[in-house]
Design a protein around this nucleic acid. Structure first.
Length: 926
RNA sequence: GCGGAUGUGGUGAAAUUGGUAGACACGCUAGACUUAGGAUCUAGUGCCGAGAGGUGUGCGGGUUCGAGUCCCUCCAUCCGCACCA
């Protein structure tokens, strides 16, 4: 019997597509473009699991739908191939990370190929390839050579700033940057090159700065927050401390306002925009300086969003790292303060923010002078104040801020209430409505007026000014690692210089080990003159770029991946423009998505690209969770109890590999062979001899033996089934557990669909005869729903629609070519191999399916004359009755009131009201 | 802690603007068929109840003729938090 033979069919079409270069994309100005992009993967050693393709299938369905709708579709794929795991593996084995990376990429490619994606593989990019990172380095150079002009609010070439310095010195500078001493034009001209560079570093978009890192002396490396747990490195368990290091940074803060405002024009989910807004963290308030008593000329600057509560300030708190701490501490407190600072340095920022129950702090012994009352107020340090946010110091208003309130209570500091008729005996009053009291000139003002009045007074007194603050920090842009892009930079007298374009790319040098040097320099410091293909100055830059460097602009390279003269040609970027649909995980909400927006704005300002936002529409696909299986071992034995009987025993659940479990029933023989310790296992079984396993939904991971790879499913059911099934699981943006149980349902659907077209010998059974009304209705109902659902990316409901249509066609015994041929095109985005095969079988030329057009919906086939009204009493549906749709409201009511059913439910009462929505519902209110 | 998301049958879910809750599948129960299959077909399947009927979208309130959908309160789970990518 010739059933639906997916193995042969899929093999045949994958070969056909590859031989005919079916998915090659060329620029074609006669067609409208559509750019669908997946977030490219990091090729890990474990290969793809079933969670990865979820987004890829979704984007592939949309790409194919858009092709069939007449668009010229750009749908590329590549690899974000720099990363820590490959480096870690290299450290352990001594093998070059490029080797493992390429091996992993090959594996990914094999897995991707079997899924039937329509990627144009000629456009593949790999961030770790020198041909690619040459241009990452080139972009870095543009950012090094750029500054942010506050007059025009855009990125400009640094030469324009240099021009200004030559003409006017530092006078009248309108550029975003760090503070530096004033200088005249004459002085500028006499600065030597290093002095000039020091000034320019205050303005460059890519600049060197001192920033704090998690330093692990024992490992000799900097660690990411997630490599640390409780102040110890996860690898090895060594202590980690905070250390200041000279690092490359990106002046993303200059773009904060634009990054915030431009969110409005993007078709992203509100939650994603909300996350970015939060990350940017705009707050409006004032900067105020407090003089330190008995330390002439020392001021503590704080930022506050509530200047209206300035009379409620009863103490100041500095971050323990604040530069003034050791200057102002008095002798008797010195020891305690030093200890506290040391204690803090072992805590991560997250720990400091999370731990609100443990209020800690230390008095410095110093006092500040309140600028309005002249009172002396104590200066404390506390780890809830972070040096990286604002000025690293806060004015504490215990009556108006809960953290300050708790701090004051804990250390017995005065609390002054500045709110009229508000009780603060239990907690602070954080509302922004109310009236101010006990505050001299602010008395009786509403809070929002008081904020303005306070800022006014602060400015008049010359102790501060109104200010907008952003939580967003400049982004650290270097890593003390090996497996990343080298900087196109060399140093002379520790001053950075760019390397000429003609010498790019600066390739990663060979090193003997992928570890830091003995004196704590990054791995690249191990390379000598011979190992660097190009070397200048005293030394090359030993840092490498972070993971987000390559991923911040890769969507541009796909447009012109082989261009050796430019990162992308003007012509191509003008045609493809920005990404129309971007699909990827929500974990990138604030990292990758913010950084690419930032780089896009820079490149736009510098006239390299014609748009200032990279991704017009964005969908976050949810995570697919694993479904783990368990066996239950009776404690102290090697005997395992089936799930329904665990209550009778004292047991421990043990993860068991899901590959030896089918529908929660354990393969007992395979279990015994699985690991030596189970060789002599005994079982307590169900009456029918089955061993039933327990299950739990968890993240997919090797250690839980719950990883499901697409490979085995493709072998068992085929790629088309897997594609349909992953979409069928639920809404794309929701996370959901993986469960193979349901897969036979969609597989059966394809088989059932196949039987509509072919007889047992695999020959077409379609006939050219006018279709029945019912079949046309089924088809057009499906066209309407599929189009609507695809347009709103409701990809799961499409699958149900296909199933309903096939069920109805089967019931109708439909054999008509005109209906079923349309249906093949309708299904093609989801099941490409299957549909190409049927397309050919029913008499079309091989591989021409994608030259046809997506079916068009015709309302005529769906017109109905009658409607089955649900009739409700007090909102509860009681019965249904069919009426012509032409029936007017009052006629309908009259007809209904005559009916026995109505009389029964009215129960002799007169309805108070009858609601009739024609074509929808009837409701009697009794 | 801050921020975001999600809670509907035994399971995955559907219900696009407030209008028949549970479409479509999985699983399960019973039956038919027989080249004994991961096949196909038929009927049933939210819960309680023999039935009439009652009840039901995480909990508790509210708005409405009518709430899974809107508003308020609470609870639970998951994700992110700046060197994982």
């Amino acid at each position: 019997m010739m059933e639906y033979n997916f193995r042969e069919i899929e093999k045949k079409w994958i070969k056909f597509w590859s031989e005919n270069k079916s998915y090659r994309t060329v620029e074609d100005s006669s067609k409208k473009k559509y750019y669908v992009l997946d977030m490219f993967p990091y090729p890990s050693g474990a290969g793809l699991h079933v969670g990865h393709p979820l987004g890829y299938i979704a984007s592939d369905v949309i790409a194919r739908y858009k092709k069939l709708s007449g668009f010229n579709v750009l749908h590329p794929m590549g690899y974000d191939s720099f990363g820590l795991p490959a480096e870690q593996y290299a450290i352990q084995t001594g093998q070059h990370p490029a080797i493992t990376t390429n091996r992993n990429i090959d594996r990914y490619r094999e897995q991707l190929d079997q899924m039937g994606f329509c990627y144009d593989w000629e456009r593949e990019v790999k961030t770790s390839s020198p041909k690619y990172y040459k241009w990452t380095q080139w972009i870095f150079k543009q950012l090094f050579n750029a500054y942010y002009d506050l007059d025009s609010n855009r990125t400009k070439n640094i030469d324009q700033l240099v021009d200004h310095f030559e003409k006017n010195g530092s006078d009248g500078i309108k550029a975003y940057g760090d503070e530096h001493d004033k200088f005249t034009s004459y002085e500028w001209k006499n600065f030597n090159i290093e002095e000039k560079e020091q000034i320019l570093q205050c303005y460059r978009i890519a600049y060197l700065s001192e920033s704090q890192v998690n330093w692990c002396p024992k490992l000799g490396t900097v660690l990411a927050n997630d490599e640390i747990s409780n102040g110890l490195s996860i690898r090895g368990g060594y202590p980690v401390e905070q250390k200041v290091m000279r690092q490359w940074s990106m002046r993303i803060k200059a773009y904060a306002e634009r990054l915030l405002n431009d969110l409005d024009g993007l078709d992203w989910t509100d939650s994603l925009k909300e996350q970015q807004k939060n990350w940017i963290g705009k707050s409006v308030g004032a900067a105020v300086s407090f003089e330190v008593a008995n330390h002439k000329g020392e001021y503590i600057e704080v930022f506050t969003t509530r200047p209206d509560t300035i009379f409620g300030v009863t103490f100041l708190v500095l971050a323990p790292e604040h530069e003034l701490v050791m200057k102002i501490v008095n002798d008797s407190q010195s020891e305690a303060v030093k200890n506290y600072v040391k204690e803090t340095s072992s805590k991560s920022e997250r720990d400091r923010q999370s731990d609100v129950k443990n209020i800690t702090g230390e008095f410095t012994g110093a006092f500040a002078i309140h600028p309005f009352t002249g009172n002396q107020i104590p200066i404390w340090i506390g780890d809830y104040v972070l040096s990286s946010y604002g000025t690293g110091a806060v004015m504490s208003v215990p009556c108006g801020d809960q953290r300050d309130y708790l701090f004051a209570k804990r250390f017995d500091i005065d609390i002054v209430n500045v709110f009229k008729d508000v009780d603060i005996s239990k907690s602070a009053y954080e509302d922004k409505t109310g009236t101010i009291a006990c505050s001299d000139f602010l008395n009786d003002l509403q809070i929002n007026q008081a904020i303005k009045a306070a800022i006014n007074a602060i400015e008049q007194k010359g102790i501060g000014k109104g200010k907008t603050n952003y939580r967003l920090r400049d982004a650290v842009f270097s890593r003390q690692r090996y497996w990343g892009e080298p900087f196109p930079v060399y140093f002379k007298n520790e001053t950075p210089y760019l390397i000429d374009d003609q010498n790019l790319p600066i390739e990663l040098p060979e090193v003997d080990k992928y570890l830091p040097t003995e004196d704590g320099e990054p791995p690249l410091a191990r390379a000598d003159k011979k190992q660097w293909k190009h070397m200048e100055g005293d030394r090359m830059d030993f840092n490498t770029m972070p993971g987000w460097a390559g991923s911040s602009w890769y969507f541009l390279r796909y447009m012109d991946p082989h261009n050796e003269k430019e990162f992308v040609s003007k012509e191509k970027v003008d045609y493809w423009q920005n990404v129309d649909l971007y699909i990827g995980g929500s974990e990138h909400a604030t990292g990758h998505l913010l950084y690419s927006r930032f780089w896009t704005k820079c490149l736009y300002d510098l006239n390299f690209i014609p748009f200032n936002e990279p991704f017009k529409k964005l969908i976050n696909q949810g995570m697919i969770l694993g479904r783990s299986n368990f066996v239950y071992r009776i404690n102290g034995t090697n005997c395992y109890v089936s799930k329904t009987k665990i209550k009778e025993h004292d047991t421990t659940p043990i993860h068991v590999d899901i590959s030896i479990v089918k529908n929660d029933i354990l393969d007992q023989q395979k279990f015994k062979e699985w690991m030596p310790e189970f060789k002599d296992a005994t079982f307590i079984l169900e009456e029918n001899g089955d061993y039933i396993c327990g299950f739990e939904v968890e993240k997919m991971s090797k250690s839980k033996y719950n990883v499901q790879t697409p490979d085995e499913l493709v072998i068992d059911f085929g790629a088309d089934t897997l594609r349909l099934y992953e979409m069928f699981l639920g809404p794309i943006e929701q996370s959901k557990p993986w469960d193979t149980k349901g897969i036979s349902g969609v597989h059966n659907f394809l088989r059932k669909c196949w039987r509509l077209y072919c007889d047992a010998d695999g020959n077409s059974i379609l006939i050219d005869k006018e279709s029945s009304k019912e079949s046309m209705k089924t088809l057009h109902k499906a066209i309407k729903r599929i189009r609507e659902d695809l347009d709103r990316f409701s990809l799961n409901t499409c699958v149900s629609t296909y199933m309903i249509a096939v069920n109805e066609f089967t019931d109708q015994k439909c054999r008509n070519r005109d209906v079923l041929e349309q249906f093949v095109i309708l299904l093609a985005p989801y099941a490409p191999h299957f549909c190409e095969e049927l397309w050919e079988k029913i008499g079309n030329q091989s591989g021409t399916l994608y030259q046809s057009r997506f079916p068009v919906f015709n309302q005529e086939y769906l017109i109905e004359n009658t409607y089955e009204y649900p009739v409700s009493f007090n909102g509860k549906m009681r019965f249904k009755v069919e009426f012509p749709l032409s029936l007017k409201k009052d006629e309908l009511q009259k007809e209904l009131e005559k009916m026995d059913q109505t009389i029964k439910w009215l129960d002799g009462k007169e309805p108070k009201k009858v609601i009739i929505v024609p074509g929808k519902i009837v409701n009697f209110v009794i």
